[in-house]
Design a protein around this nucleic acid. Structure first.
Lengths: 138, 138
DNA sequence: TTCTTGACTTAGACATTGTCCAATGTAGGA
DNA sequence: TCCTACATTGGACAATGTCTAAGTCAAGAA
C-alpha cells in the first residue's frame, strides 16, 4: 500500500493525512466498502476527517485507476482496491457479501460483431449472484 | 402487452388505470426507463398518477418476474420489460444509451467450481461498455 | 528554517433517488 | 348496488452523493 502512495506522489498527488488514511482503509484482499464504511473506518484513525474528503479521495483514486467502483445493487457504490488484477465479482443475494473471482474465457470475445451495433466496445463486467455458504446453512 | 395485463389479472392482480398506464409505458423494444422517466410518461396519459404508485407498480412487476431491474451506474435503476428473453446490456459510456444484446457462450459455465467458494451460483449478469456510433462521430 | 501559494479539507446546504405512512378511493365479487 | 380488501395519494422522511465558500496546510522556493 505504501507503494501506492509513492506512485500517487510521483503523479503529483499531494500527500495528506486524510488521503493516507483512506488509502490505508482500502488495503487488503476482498475489500469492497461503501463510501460510508470507508468514512467510518477512516474516522477511527483520524476523527476529524470529513465525508466530503472521503468522497473526493475515492473519486480521485478511481480516476487514477487505482481503485474500482462497483455498483452492485443500485444502493451505495462500493470501492475495490484490487484494480490491477482483472477479476469479476460473486455476490451473495442474501447478505451482500462480495468475493473476487476469476473466470476462464474472455467475455469480450463472446459478443459477436453484429451484436455490437457499431459500438467501440472496451469494457465488460461480469457479476455472479448466489447464496453463500453461511447463508445456505442456517 | 395486453397479454401481460391478462396474465397479471390471472394472478390476482387488481387492474387499475394506473397499473395499465405503467404497463403501457413499458411496452416496446430496448426500453430501459428510470422510475422518474416512467412517471413522466405515465403522467402524460394519466396526469394524477403519483410517484409512489409508479414505484409500487414497478416493484410489483419486478417481483412477478415481468420486468427486470437494471443497475447500470449507481444512479437511478432502470426497468427492462424484456424479461422473458435472456439477454445482456451494451451501454454507451458517454450518453448512457442501453441496447439489449445476445452473447454466444454461457457465462455461468465460465466460473470454475473452485472459484465458487461454496456459493450456490444461480445468476450472472454481463454488461458491456463502449462508445456508441452517435457519440463516436461528433 | 521560514515563507508563500495553490491545492486540500471542512461543514453544511442542497440534489437525487427511493421508501413509508395515514387518509382516501375504488375494482370486483357477493 | 353495496362491501371491503386492496390500491392510490401526497407528503414526510431516509440514504447517498454533490457542491461551495471559507479556512488550512504540504511542499517547493529562498
Amino acid at each position: 500500500m505504501s507503494d501506492l502512495l509513492e506512485r500517487l506522489r510521483g503523479r503529483g498527488w499531494r500527500l495528506t493525512a486524510q488521503r493516507r488514511v483512506v488509502a490505508e482503509v482500502l488495503d487488503g484482499d476482498h475489500v469492497h466498502y461503501t463510501a460510508d464504511e470507508v468514512h467510518a473506518r477512516a474516522t477511527d484513525r483520524l476523527p476529524e476527517i470529513s465525508r466530503a474528503t472521503v468522497y473526493n479521495t475515492l473519486g480521485e483514486l478511481v480516476s487514477l485507476g487505482e481503485v474500482l467502483e462497483v455498483s452492485t445493487d443500485g444502493r451505495a457504490k462500493r470501492y475495490d482496491p484490487n484494480a490491477h488484477h482483472d477479476h469479476q465479482h460473486l455476490i451473495c443475494s442474501r447478505c451482500g457479501t462480495i468475493r473476487d473471482v476469476h473466470i476462464q474465457s474472455d467475455p469480450l470475445s463472446a459478443l459477436p460483431e453484429p451484436e455490437r451495433y457499431g459500438f467501440q466496445v472496451s469494457e465488460v463486467t461480469v457479476t455472479y449472484r448466489g447464496i453463500c455458504p453461511s447463508c445456505a446453512t442456517p
